[in-house]
Design a protein around this nucleic acid. Structure first.
Lengths: 105, 105
DNA sequence: CGACGCGTTCACACGCGTTTCACCAGGCAA
DNA sequence: TTGCCTGGTGAAACGCGTGTGAACGCGTCG
């Protein structure tokens, strides 16, 4: 687990210590879970993470088969990211596997 | 240097842990089945594999006589490989037998 | 005590991947 | 060449995985 330092990937800047996220310099209002999930994705940029990996990292414990929490939070994150940058999808779905965060250029 | 599980044959690099395939450094977007089939072929480079062998390895169980799944997926893999490297055929047909993957130079 | 925010779960529609089908192309034998 | 068999591949059918609005429960704060 990396320290609570500022993480910058592309246009995204995460300051866990201050519980703030900047996208293109625009502050995002995220809940604790949303921030944790986005951090986990951003720290593994351009890597496909399974739901199990994400759940374990953010929620802890094993993902139950019916649990859709990861999907729901990915959806909410996408909405908040798209509110600032509508034209670029940051979180990509890998069907049958999981998700991948791509900070892009 | 990639992790130990990475399979590299010629211009192809397969990272099963990340569900990622690179051809000449270009990431290929493959489905789960496509990736499994390509892995099986690449792990047996320059060796002719029968449809039965491929089906057993990727799908599991026995190949029914009418099942064309292997052919269809070989076709799709060829298309995606050719999208990156049009001039070189990687998957060769051995008439009446099966297929052979040749990573080349 | 009521309102609010957050996390979780549910429900349903939709998109994507897989399988199957159909038809065409190409190789092999005679 | 003729005929048969094998392989190539576009497209439809089907089932399952995913997207997402909404409801619910719970804790917190005014």
């Amino acid at each position: 687990m990396p320290p609570a330092e500022t993480v910058t990937t592309g246009r995204l800047e995460i300051r866990p210590g201050e519980h703030t996220v900047l996208l293109d310099g625009v502050p995002l209002v995220l809940t604790v879970r949303e921030l944790a999930l986005l951090s986990e994705l951003a720290q593994n940029s351009d890597r496909v993470l399974t739901r199990e990996e994400l759940y374990r990292a953010v929620w802890g414990g094993d993902l139950r088969t019916t649990d859709r929490s990861v999907d729901v939070y990915v959806s909410r994150l996408r909405a908040k990211l798209a509110a600032v940058v509508p034209e670029k999808p940051f979180i990509h779905t890998h069907f049958g596997i999981g998700y991948r965060f791509s900070p892009g250029a």
